[in-house]
């Protein structure tokens, strides 16, 4: 469903992606792990066309992402951004219903609001939250609103960028559970970025590890522990000693 071939991207002299190859099948939950700043977010942004790769090919549904109609393409996607990226000038329900209030998929305001309230309920937020502004919510609630916005238009592909970072363990568990349930309900294809190993085990079908601009290892989540790859091993055990250089 999603295929990256030899994708490169540099920012100035910073070679972030140095030949990424990755495939995600329809209905699969792929989790990308890797240290901070290794370019995990950049991978997702390249797929969405928010960042243009310097070289390489990206296909979604067998079509090159740079060809064809942008709106049709983007309508397939929902994305939860790392910092939730809610529009702080709009109340919560208008954030969730953003796509339903304008452009091609436009619906009557009352109906859009109804859908938004329903999606908020799905992520465990009551209707009293609908008219608050994002700045009035806690971090965990903002993440949930971001999640509700990502699923609002029932997309076929959903990206989650660090859905549990910065949350307490219980809230993180709740979000993991939500993601798993929602994905099962909707049958969506998902790519999740995380460096939280609990998250990985909770939601992954397949795991890919990004290191030094390449996919270092990829395989089913059950094989991750037995991977015998020193990099993967160091990452999942969280040791400071190993082939991954750490700054001390």
């Amino acid at each position: 469903m999603i295929r990256l071939c030899d994708v490169h991207k540099s920012f100035g002299g910073n070679h972030v992606l140095r030949g990424v190859d990755l495939g995600v099948e329809r209905g699969q939950s792929m989790v990308i792990i890797g240290g901070s700043g290794t370019g995990k977010s950049v991978v997702l942004k390249c797929i969405l066309g928010l960042i243009r790769p310097d070289a390489g090919r990206i296909e979604v549904d067998g079509r090159d992402v740079t060809q064809g109609d942008r709106d049709d393409f983007l309508a397939k996607f929902g994305m939860l951004f790392q910092g939730a990226a809610l529009f702080d000038s709009l109340p919560v329900w208008q954030n969730v219903a953003f796509r339903l209030l304008r452009g091609r998929g436009k619906r009557p305001r009352a109906e859009a609001r109804e859908i938004a309230v329903e999606k908020l309920r799905r992520v465990g937020l009551g209707p009293e939250v609908a008219d608050l502004l994002p700045a009035e919510l806690s971090g965990g609630m903002q993440k949930r609103v971001g999640l509700a916005r990502a699923i609002a238009a029932d997309p076929a592909i959903i990206f989650f960028d660090e859905p549990t970072t910065g949350l307490d363990p219980i809230m993180a568990g709740v979000i993991n559970e939500l993601i798993r349930e929602i994905v099962a309900e909707m049958g969506a294809t998902t790519v999740t970025i995380t460096h939280d190993m609990t998250s990985v085990r909770a939601i992954a079908d397949r795991v890919a590890m990004l290191h030094r601009g390449k996919i270092r290892w990829t395989g089913p989540v059950e094989e991750m522990d037995a991977a015998r790859d020193p990099y993967v091993d160091q990452f999942i055990s969280g040791r400071a000693e190993g082939p991954i250089e750490t700054l001390r």
Binding site: K45, L48, G49, L50, R70, D71, L74, A75, F77, G78, M79, F81, Q82, G83, A85, L86, F87, D88, F98, R99, R102, G103, R104, R149
Partner: peptide
């Protein structure tokens, strides 16, 4: 601020 907090990216992904 919208750019720095990825709100501009979010706009684009919401087909706007």
């Amino acid at each position: 601020t919208m750019k720095v907090t990825e709100q501009i990216d979010a706009l684009v992904t919401l087909s706007t």
